[in-house]
Simulated scan of single mutants.
Amino acid sequence: MKTTPKHDERIAKMTFASVYPHYVTKVEKKGRTQDELQTVITWLTGFDNNQIQEYIDSKATFETFFSDATLNENAHLIKGVICGYRIEEIETPLTKHVRYLDKLVDELAKGRKMEKILRSA
């Protein structure tokens, strides 16, 4: 399934701050913690907790958030379907990076072990 330019633009303009509370709600509803969520985001982006909070406070777009990030060298190991899109087939880098994050949050909420989520096992 290919993303459309309109879809990619919508993702680029979306703010990290608008989505972050939904990530928190999703993982906490399933018994995971905000600290675990922060760990997952840090693994993917290289940002520490203070930097993540700065992006939330400044209402940075996903475009800014991921352009500043240093993506984990093992991020390419994140595979599967999220939001109806097979991650491996997404061609637009920004959309792929956002879907990486969505997939990691989904795995966290589903109770997957942290070592598996962080692709270290």
Rank of each mutant, 00 (worst) to 15 (best):
Asn50Leu: 04
Asn74Ile: 03
Gly84Lys: 13
Phe62Tyr: 15
Val98Phe: 14
Glu36Val: 02
Ile41Leu: 11
Glu28Asn: 09
Gln38Asn: 12
His76Cys: 01
Lys6Ser: 10
Asp106Val: 00
Glu89Gly: 09
Ile56Asn: 03
Pro5Asn: 06
Asp8Val: 06
Lys59Asn: 15
Asn72Thr: 05
Gly46Trp: 13
Gln38Arg: 14
Gly80Gln: 08
Glu89Leu: 12
Thr33Cys: 00
Val81Gln: 14
Lys29Glu: 15
Thr39His: 04
Asn74Lys: 12
Thr45Arg: 08
Leu71Tyr: 11
His76Asp: 10
Pro93Ile: 04
Asn74Gly: 11
Gly111Pro: 05
Thr39Pro: 01
Leu104Ile: 02
Thr45Ile: 02
Lys13Ser: 09
Leu118Pro: 01
Thr61Pro: 01
Asp106Ser: 07
Leu77Ala: 07
Lys116Phe: 13
Ile52Tyr: 03
Ile87Arg: 01
Gly31Asp: 06
Leu108His: 02
Glu107Leu: 04
Pro93Arg: 04
Leu77Arg: 15
Lys30Arg: 13
Thr64Lys: 12
Lys113Leu: 09
Thr45Leu: 04
Glu9Tyr: 10
Ile41Met: 07
Gly31Cys: 06
His76Tyr: 10
Ile117Leu: 02
Ala121Glu: 13
Thr45Gln: 04
Thr70Gln: 08
Gln34Asp: 09
Lys113Gln: 09
Arg86Asn: 15
